[in-house]
């Protein structure tokens, strides 16, 4: 392959991966106030492409509010943010095509079958039937749900439901996947399996932005930030944070950050 062909291929690649080769996600002084209460207070961060970024914080620290701003569900009061190089203030509609989102609440339809849920998720993103069927079949195989695909989703164990929800949120192969406390209420084994699926999703090039308050999960992330009362008080790889704090677990890092 000649040099120019390589360049062409690279630029085609770039065209497919969007207008920017910068960070998958960036925020500069992003702020959200509700009346006198500041839920998110001037947070700044950058998440590289393909990274698994852990967005940590206690309940009520402002994690969900921040995610909702990135996803276009909530307008910032101040500051700026970019998803896949696009400003959330001006390009929210385009951003929506490129992101996936899984909320804390189980967000599939209990009264649809497993298969119908996936068809619907793919369908509203404009995927063709063939694309949906192929990807769904792969996911069923991966989750061992092939024989349950005609079961009502309500009848699945929670651990399966959560992995199914992740699969549905990632079915349209988003650039950035936002997971808001995706593993609440399941046992450690189910959480482990869930994280296996997160790794696989990230391996295929998707950037994963995940909130959690399970500190063992924080260890699985490439980098994490810790949010306290709307502010980011620590940011780095789990290893760096542990070294800086002079402790051996993320649990201790977190407790130190939350109660200095």
């Amino acid at each position: 392959m000649s040099g120019t062909e390589l360049e062409k291929a690279a630029s085609a690649n770039r065209a497919r991966s969007g207008p920017s080769d910068g960070p998958a996600l960036a925020a500069r002084d992003l702020t959200r106030r509700f009346g006198a209460f500041t839920a998110v207070d001037r947070i700044s961060l950058e998440v590289a492409r393909g990274e698994i970024f852990g967005f940590l914080g206690a309940n009520g620290a402002g994690k969900t509010t921040a995610i909702r701003m990135f996803c276009g569900l909530l307008e910032p009061s101040d500051g700026e943010a970019w998803v896949d190089g696009l400003s959330i203030a001006t390009r929210a509609e385009t951003i929506k095509r490129r992101i996936g989102y899984m909320s804390q609440k189980f967000s599939l339809y209990d009264d649809l079958t497993v298969e119908e849920n996936l068809r619907f998720s793919g369908g509203i993103y404009g995927l063709r039937k063939r694309e949906i069927d192929e990807r769904a079949a792969r996911l069923f195989d991966r989750l061992g749900l092939h024989d349950s695909r005609r079961r009502l989703t309500a009848s699945l164990p929670l651990g399966y439901k959560q992995r199914l929800a992740l699969g549905a949120a990632a079915l349209h192969e988003p650039r950035v996947l936002f997971l808001d406390e995706p593993t609440g209420g399941v046992d450690p084994l189910a959480r482990r399996e869930f994280w296996d699926l997160i790794y696989e999703t990230a391996d295929s090039g998707t950037t994963v932005f995940v909130t959690t308050h399970y500190m063992d999960e924080a260890e699985y992330c490439g980098r994490v930030s810790i949010m306290v009362e709307g502010k980011i008080v620590a940011l780095g790889s789990p290893k760096e944070l542990k070294e800086n704090a002079g402790v051996s677990t993320m649990e201790e890092v977190f407790l130190k950050a939350v109660r200095p």
Partner: peptide, 14 residues
């Protein structure tokens, strides 16, 4: 109530 509305709102549906 079930939270699925949010899922629709983050989708590209107008």
């Amino acid at each position: 109530e079930t939270g699925t509305l949010e899922q629709l709102l983050v989708s590209p549906l107008s």
